[in-house]
Design a protein around this nucleic acid. Structure first.
Length: 271
DNA sequence: CTTTGCACCTGTTGGC
DNA sequence: TGCCAACAGGTGCAAA
């Protein structure tokens, strides 16, 4: 479900309800997520104040004075604020109960998400340590992408989805950015000129910025922490549009598989 | 080192 | 209505 814009939308939705508030309890109903939810979280967090809600890649970081709770939504996860004690439906695996009478509830049918704890700097956590730059940060620019892609034979779509190259570009926005940059998704990463790398960087940044501005993309049931859906779906130019006409040239949008994922592109606009 | 494919898990959709 | 295959927005890991 969530790519970076959805995670960021979630972060912005939940942060005001968490920051500065105290944890009253932690309820783990189903500890088997991608990794087991660590035991003893309630004892570790009860009475502690959430100092900040940050994001690195698609990980949400709830900072406490003595460590950080790391949340990931996987493919199907979402976070909502609910009234504490509200009955839990199926797949509602985890609650962070606040002293405000509300709780942050994690729902995740496929359980590819994660709830982890680190007492150290989360940037040094093994899952975060080797991540590439943030796509919306200053370190992600044309020079970087050009240099990183030299001699790489992998398809450019897979390359920009590689979290060691740049984080946060998921399957929807990879297709969308490549369309906006006019680059064929199957082209070898190393074959891009510096100028085309610049176009691609700009397209990635633009599409992610715009998606965040629209509150993310809601294809099935994504909602931000406030329960509102994302409106970027109406801006999608190629994703999910196989067989429909290209918005730019009218050619038929095609679908192919790359790395067991669907890729959508315009065979005329993208080279 | 890079590249490729699988694995984790459940739900939805579409064809027959 | 039922059954089954294919697919779904992520990503760590093993194998080639």
């Amino acid at each position: 479900m969530p790519e970076l814009p959805e995670v960021e939308t979630t972060r912005r939705g939940i942060a005001p309800h968490l920051t500065g508030h105290t944890v009253a309890d932690v309820i783990v109903r189903h500890p088997q997520l991608r990794w087991p939810v660590p035991r003893g979280l309630a004892g570790k967090l009860r009475g502690c104040i959430i100092q900040a809600v940050e994001r690195r890649a698609k990980y949400l970081l709830l900072r406490f004075g003595h460590g950080t709770l790391i949340l990931h939504l996987g493919m199907s996860g979402s976070l909502r604020l609910i009234d504490a004690g509200a009955p839990a439906a199926k797949h509602e695996h985890f609650d962070l109960v606040l002293d405000t009478g509300r709780a942050l509830r994690l729902t995740d049918p496929r359980r590819f998400g994660a709830v982890l704890w680190t007492r150290n700097d989360p940037a040094q956590h093994e899952l975060l340590r080797d991540l590439g730059p943030e796509p919306l940060g200053d370190n992600f620019d044309a020079d970087y992408l050009y240099l990183a892609s030299r001699k790489r034979t992998t398809a450019i779509k897979l390359f920009i989805m590689d979290s060691k190259v740049v984080v946060g570009v998921g399957n929807i926005y990879a297709s969308e950015a490549l369309f906006r940059a006019g680059i064929h998704p199957g082209r070898a990463a190393g074959s891009l000129s510096h100028e085309r790398c610049a176009r691609l960087v700009a397209a990635i940044r633009q599409v992610l910025h715009e998606a965040i501005r629209q509150g993310g993309t809601t294809l099935r049931d994504f909602t931000g922490g406030d329960g509102k859906p994302g409106y970027f779906a109406q801006e999608l130019r190629v994703y999910g549009r196989a067989g429909e006409p290209c918005t730019a040239c009218g050619a038929t949008i095609k679908q192919m598989r790359q790395g067991q994922r669907s890729t959508y592109y315009c065979p005329r606009c993208q080279r």
